[in-house]
Amino acid sequence: MNLGQHAGFIVAAYGVAVIVVTALIGWIAADYRRQTRTLRRLEASGITRRSAAIAPAAGTAPSRAAP
């Protein structure tokens, strides 16, 4: 594969794109882990939302509360 005389710019453009997209994905994934962990900790300590206590039909919260 020959990228011609401007190979540096092409590589740089794809490099920046990879870095930013990876950072975005990583940030969202890390945020998700942080939120679920906090939520689990809170629910394990006995604090639940009223709606989660009444309607566990499609809920994810009550099942996760068990350690």
């Binding site: 975005l24 969202i28 939120q35 809170l42």
Partner: peptide
């Protein structure tokens, strides 16, 4: 990514509510 970020935001709001409670 948008759907994943929305999921995070919903969880964040739940946590906020729980903290307030």
């Amino acid at each position: 990514l948008h759907l994943a970020a929305m999921r995070n935001e919903i969880l964040r709001r739940r946590i906020r509510t729980l903290h307030l409670m």
